[in-house]
Amino acid sequence: MPQPRIPLFLDCDPGIDDAIALGYLLCQDDVDIAGIAASGGNAPVEQTTRNALGWLQLAGRTDICVHPGADRPLAQDADYALETHGETGAGYARLPLEGLPPSDTDAAHAWAAAARAHPGELIGVLVGPATNLALALDLEPRLPQLIRRLFIMGGAFNYRGNTRPTTEWNVTWDPEAASRVIAAFGQAYIAGDAPYAPVMAPIEATEAVVMTPERLAKIRSRGDLSPNRTPQWSTWLDQLAAALRFYFEFHEWDGHGYLAHIHDPYVLAAAIEWARQAETTGKVGRAGNDRDPFTTIATDELRVSDESIRAVEPDRREVMARGDTTPVPWAETTQAAVDIELTGTLTRGETVADWLGRWNRPANAEIIRRIDAESFLDNLTEALQKGPGGPTQP
């Protein structure tokens, strides 16, 4: 029986850890890349778009579309993390300067088109600011029903920030966009219009995922896992090492030691592995809810009436009706009501979770609290060491 395909849309702002995520994605042969969106964030959008294109071209994947996105947040001026990722957003890496052009379709329209093309199946992964997806919601309000599940790298819950004292970079870059996305996807889950809560991976969890020079050397080595590695992929890894050298230096300057927190690849990998496990085990839907989550996205009772949504396979309908859930891989999670602070003079952009139920609101997000970083990093190491050519073992 052929392995199920996983359609996935990645929204990123490359960025050095974004580049690792892109490399990991290219190594997953059972994933159909429905598109890659670039956002302003770690660098201006023109640069992040060039970086995404450059990393893809370096890997020989000129078939993948990169969709340029928003150049500024919805309600504030843009800021960039050039001290963290370098003037080009790629550290010391030298990426191709000419060649692969960006798509004529902007990121917001690309989100909407990908979701319509894969109703109920598309995995959405957001590892940059939420601006593109927020704008896509204006174009297609049904996105929370069309997208199978959304995975978000962002936030800091009761934790010191990496941008302001209590805030994380992606959310801080565009708090209004993050608020809009969490509200839309969370409300769809609460209402029963979508079977899954959005997953949030905040920095207090993802900072456990640490790249070291020793692990990087293992990735670049030619061991038993990489007998068929191509010279092209070795060149790709050489440039990733150059990018990471800058990232190591920044983290050392910032007081963390000569290492790098690599948030983004974990979130992407968790999304892919979650989709694989959901297909394999048939655990689809929400825990503790006696409503058929399929019905909420597949009948005329609710807002979504698109014929393509109602065409999901009948055998999946039976699976979804059971109300089982598939855990987020390599993680311990909890559900809570989440909101974004938009007006605080000291805390604008802070993600707030109502752990004690004081708001009397239902949970609208699944929050990753702890990550089995070593197990994930072993998976990442294996994937990058092998290079494109097959999925790794979980």
Rank of each mutant, 00 (worst) to 15 (best):
I152P: 03
I152G: 04
G154Q: 06
G155R: 08
A156L: 11
F157Q: 12
Y159A: 14
R160P: 06
R160I: 14
P165H: 04
P165A: 05
P165M: 04
T166Y: 05
T166A: 14
T166N: 13
T167G: 03
T167I: 01
E168T: 05
W169R: 13
T172V: 08
T172R: 15
W173P: 07
E176F: 11
A177L: 06
A178Q: 10
S179T: 12
S179V: 07
V181T: 10
V181L: 04
A183N: 15
A184P: 01
F185Y: 09
G186C: 02
G186S: 03
G186M: 04
Q187C: 09
Q187M: 12
Q187T: 14
A188Q: 03
Y189Q: 01
A191G: 10
G192S: 09
D193G: 14
P195D: 12
A197P: 02
A197N: 00
P198D: 02
P198E: 04
M200K: 03
P202G: 05
I203H: 07
I203D: 07
E207L: 08
V209S: 07
V210S: 02
V210A: 02
V210W: 02
M211V: 05
P213T: 05
E214I: 04
A217Q: 14
A217Y: 03
K218I: 14
S221H: 14
R222A: 12
D224T: 13
T230E: 03
Q232A: 15
Q232F: 09
Q232W: 06
S234Q: 15
S234Y: 00
W236R: 02
W236V: 08
L237K: 01
L237W: 01
L240W: 00
A242H: 09
L244Q: 09
R245H: 12
R245S: 13
Y247T: 01
